[in-house]
Design a protein around this nucleic acid. Structure first.
Lengths: 339, 339
DNA sequence: TTGAAAGCGGTACCAT
DNA sequence: ATGGTACCGCTTTCAA
């Protein structure tokens, strides 16, 4: 069912040579005459021969395949990451298995197991869900990006932005534009632990430096549809305390929700209340008013993920940590509507 | 490197049973005592045993894996499709290999080949690129969605919307709102052949029924960044002929480009010129003015793709063609800014 | 330059 | 209930 039934034996038999020779010719290894080469190649083509990867993997104990785990490729940030990492890997002859974990530990664990069964040569973890992977991956090369863990896998590279620095920059921008009551919209970042997250700490850093008082951070316990949550959280927060004049959002979907809230509340984004998101997605550019954001250089992060993996795959030592620069992009929600 | 080195032989030896028994226990097949079961399971767990998929596939000649080919998962329409199809497949115990072809024939062909090497049990083609696959896939079950081909694979289901009907509906909506000079923005749909595409034909259908004259369709030879292309095409078209008062776009990115163009030209979207896109992506909802669009019921298409594949995988006859309904969603660009 | 054969890690048939 | 073993398709020594 799965595979056309013609095997290397068939080719060998029809061509009147041994399987060793067929293998050599088709892989360009070893020595063989030009005549043999042509013969074998023509027979193989004629028969529509497709080599069995399974047999190859079984024999070679390496699959030239890596697993990429991500919460959800329908999220534009993750899909761009996956696409970029995959491209880099592909160029080097590696395929990738993409797994959507839905940000759930059980699915992530199942995926890791399934990937290991498939003899993947490495694992790339992109985004969100943290779990007990290190225990199970053994010495499989791993790349982590935007991934929180307590214990790193044995052979592991970490690539991404300086998250703490990013929120620091976001808050700083708001302050520069005159905000004095800046809140962090801690929605959808993973529940209970977000108050110790690098991003939140960066926010605190900035306020500390600026001599401003941190606002009771806006927060919602639910993960998932972050846009609506964020909206609800902001609306509710303003009902409690309307002195807020700056919002730091850790992602553009959340920022979108903030914008929804501001519009609904009738306050002027970029005027009464300034707002800055993160990821610089298309969304932030096309809404009105356009949302200031942080360009994380996603293509570069993705490529670096791929490269870090390839380096380990080639037997090199893990590169350790790779920091990719980011840029603040100001638009109407910090510059004001006139911009 | 790839796999932890503990094999079924190790488990058998340590547990003091045969490999056959280990296999039976771990797969819940055959007969064995409770004691044996517990023994084997504990040894396996203890040793961190992970079965080799490669060996399994080689032996069973089926991989419980399907290949999903798509132009580009960073496109929100495709990523939603992929995600949905994958989910349905996953629930039934199938993994999927996702391949981004970049809409290029050579990459698609290479991907198909690579997938077949990997003994995938089926192939799902989502979107755009048409090629000579049917010749090479043999009797592998295939699902095609939004995929143009002349010749269908042997075992094949086609699932998606009635494309011709969709553009017909789009044009009809514009006409109902009073448009009399409706143009089809044929950008990025694949170059030379789009004038025979179902979508374009649907547009012609509608104009015919309505007794309107088809406009020289706007067109751009380049594929790719459809938004900017569309903008350029529309701007240029208006320079030539400013009587156009309705635009049918085959996708939201293109619609976005149309909107850009209208705004740049200083004509009022929804007033002077009405516009309707397709796919009902987030974009169409969050821009100002909001773009009317066609909700294609993507989650349902995706699920049907998965189900059609599963049915064939289970040995059933291909379901043939599955048509998924769609809805027109009117927003400001057809209803007018007051809406 | 070519070939014979072992072995990768499972599964399943056939004995016992 | 359990074990022995052939076999899946390929790569890779080692010999010829």
């Amino acid at each position: 069912m799965a595979r056309s039934s013609v095997s290397i034996y068939d080719i060998a038999r029809i061509a009147g040579v041994s399987t060793a020779t067929v293998s050599n010719v088709l892989n360009g290894k070893g020595r063989f005459s030009q005549a043999t080469k042509e013969l074998v190649e023509s027979v193989a083509a004629e028969q529509g021969y497709v080599a069995s990867y399974a047999a190859k993997v079984l024999r070679e104990d390496r699959s030239r395949t890596v697993g990429i785990l991500t919460p959800d490729v329908s999220n534009e940030f993750f899909s761009a990451m996956v696409l970029g990492a995959e491209a880099t890997l592909n160029d080097a002859g590696y395929s990738s298995f993409i797994c959507n974990t839905g940000n759930r530990q059980d699915r992530a664990a199942a995926s890791v197991r399934s990937l290991m069964e498939k003899s993947v040569d490495g694992l790339v973890f992109i985004g969100g869900s943290r779990g007990a992977e290190p225990a199970v991956v053994g010495d499989l090369p791993c790349v982590l990006s935007d991934y929180e863990t307590q214990t790193l896998p044995a052979r592991c590279a970490v690539v991404g932005n300086d998250l703490r620095g990013m929120t620091r920059s976001q808050a700083a921008v708001l302050a520069r534009r005159g905000c004095e009551h800046i809140a962090y919209v801690g929605v959808g970042t993973g529940g209970r632990r977000w108050k110790t997250s690098p991003r939140y700490l960066g926010y605190l850093d900035a306020l500390d430096v600026l001599g401003l008082e941190p606002m009771a951070a806006l927060e919602s316990p639910i993960e998932g549809a972050s846009r609506d949550e964020a909206k609800a959280a902001v609306v509710e927060a303003f009902a409690r305390n309307s002195s807020v004049d700056g919002l730091v959002a850790p992602g553009d979907r959340i920022a979108l929700g903030c914008l929804d809230a501001l519009l609904e509340l009738g306050v002027e984004p970029g005027g009464d209340v300034r707002l800055i998101g993160c990821d610089d997605s298309v969304y932030s550019r096309i809404v009105t008013p356009a949302i200031s954001s942080v360009d994380r250089h996603v293509p570069e992060i993705a490529a670096q993920c791929g490269r870090a993996m390839l380096a380990m795959l080639a037997g090199e030592e893990p590169v350790g940590q790779v920091l990719v620069p980011y840029d603040v992009v100001e638009r109407e929600t910090t510059l004001g509507p006139s911009a």
